[in-house]
Design a protein around this nucleic acid. Structure first.
Length: 416
RNA sequence: GGAAGCGUGGCAGAGCGGCCGAAUGCACCCGCCUUGAAAGCGGGAGACGGGCAACCGUCCGGGGGUUCAAAUCCCUCCGCUUCCGCCA
């Protein structure tokens, strides 16, 4: 949630952010008035409660007729307090409900617009010229005995797959390489729960506009996570940290992909379940922007290791997640699509998630402050697409990028 | 799945319906003492909300109830522990 103080002192910032996202601006004024009513309700209830406290003590001391008379007064006051508290709760609920509808404030430098209005920050490497007709990742993967889509569908339905043999090895090599890099860079490796409680899912901002993306188990009221960002953000909920923290979460991720019918139906680009190593940082708000640049740097370090051409984009405001202040994606070149496709995504969520989840840190003066959270992808199953297609050879074999060989144990994988 | 018990401040751990935001110990901070430290002595220190402030209010797992008054009594949900059963 956003900071109410910012809203009170600078509502125009919030309005501008809403405009940039293409979201409702009127909610800002509704919230301002609800906040005003809430504060006066608090003040009324506080005053009455203070009176009640004093009177209650007198009742305790009084005897006989005095006591009876005081009791009558106290009963009336109790009724007033109850009414005032009801008003306080009602206005607080109203504020919270409106607050929950406002996504994070966007970064002033983020490009304004929709999905296609991103800005290319840079392009690294050049797409390879093939002297043969390149195969797509599914043809390659099938012939290599790496991907079994048909049986995936038989067992789990559409958008499910088996990684087998060298495919499974390739994924483990990739994720292990990511885990090793993260550890070397000071991240603590974490294997997280992939089912979480509603408060945690809501706290990370995924139960708002994008809730249809999320699997829910109604019998247990648990949600399947679409990224280990969710459990890692919840990890320190209701805690006060004594410094910054960096975690690398390894988990399976589950996405319903509702509303993407017909999109990327071939292969493992868009699937219901995949694995991912995700970086997650807790830092002071003033360090968040610098941390965001560092996360992007570590993503690029990983991309360099798989030796594929890629570009970095600054995502447009309309395409930001609820919690994101700014987002950079790294997109790898996919030869058979003649397109760049997203491999990583790093978001600066500023204090938005931490405020909902009540994650704080102790500042130099010993005061508690809301922390900032950031996340960024280090590797996912989808990376296999880029590796297979970019490093394929005319005979259908695939050369393993040098940095991955120690993790893979071989230089090349061949059709069976 | 059944049964019982428990959930209090950074940690441990007291707590009679009003004198409880809460004893005590440890840890922490500041003094004194000491060449320095430890010990000892004295003092300080929770979180959140409202207010320019003095100050006021809220918070004893969450929510609801009883009562003039709830950490304390009742209901409910969540979590933890133990025992039994079942399954891996």
């Amino acid at each position: 949630m956003i900071d109410l103080k910012v809203l009170r002192e600078n509502p125009e910032i919030v309005r501008a952010s809403q405009r940039a996202r293409g979201e409702d601006e009127a909610v800002v004024d509704s919230l301002l008035s609800a906040d005003e009513r809430r504060r006066s309700a608090i003040s009324r209830a506080d005053t009455l409660r203070a009176e009640q406290k004093v009177l209650g003590k007198e009742v305790g001391k009084a005897k006989g007729d005095d006591r009876a008379a005081l009791l009558v007064k106290a009963k009336d006051l109790a009724a007033e307090v109850k009414a005032a508290e009801a008003e306080q709760n009602a206005t607080a609920d109203e504020v919270n409900e409106l607050l929950a509808r406002i996504p994070n404030l966007v970064h002033p430098d983020a490009p304004v617009g929709g999905e296609d209005d991103f800005v290319v920050v840079k392009t690294v490497g050049t797409p390879r010229e093939f002297d043969f007709e390149p195969q797509d990742h599914l043809d390659l993967g099938t012939k290599l005995g790496a991907i079994d889509m048909e049986r995936g569908a038989k067992v789990g339905g559409s958008r499910f797959y088996f990684l087998r043999g060298v495919g499974a090895q390739l994924e483990l090599a990739l994720l292990n390489m990511a885990a090793a890099q993260a550890t070397a860079n000071g991240f603590e490796l974490m294997i997280t729960p992939t089912l979480v409680r509603p408060e945690i899912m809501a706290g990370t901002g995924f139960l708002g506009a994008h809730s249809s993306e999320i699997y829910h188990l109604p019998n247990d009221d648990l949600y399947l996570v679409g990224t280990s960002e969710v459990p890692l953000a919840g990890y320190h909920a209701d805690e006060i940290l004594d410094g910054e923290r960096r975690y690398a979460g390894w988990s399976s991720c589950y996405r319903r992909e509702a509303g993407s019918y017909g999109k990327d139906t071939r292969g493992i680009i868009r699937v219901h379940q995949f694995n991912k190593v995700e970086m997650f940082s807790y830092v002071k708000p003033e360090d968040a922007e610098a941390e965001h640049a560092r996360l992007l740097g570590w993503e690029e370090e990983m991309l360099a290791k798989i030796e594929v051409p890629y570009r970095v984009i600054d995502t447009a405001t309309g395409d930001l997640g609820t919690s994101a202040h700014r987002k950079f994606d790294c997109e790898a070149w996919v030869p058979t699509q003649q397109k760049y496709r997203e491999l990583t995504s790093t978001s600066n969520c500023t204090t938005f998630q931490a405020r909902r989840l009540n994650v704080r840190y102790r500042d130099e003066n010993g005061k508690s402050q809301i922390a900032a959270t950031l996340n960024g992808t280090l590797a996912t199953t989808r990376w296999i697409v880029a590796i297979l297609e970019n490093h394929q050879n005319a005979d259908g074999s695939v050369t393993i990028p040098e940095a991955m060989r120690p993790f893979m144990g071989t230089d090349v994988i061949k059709p069976r």
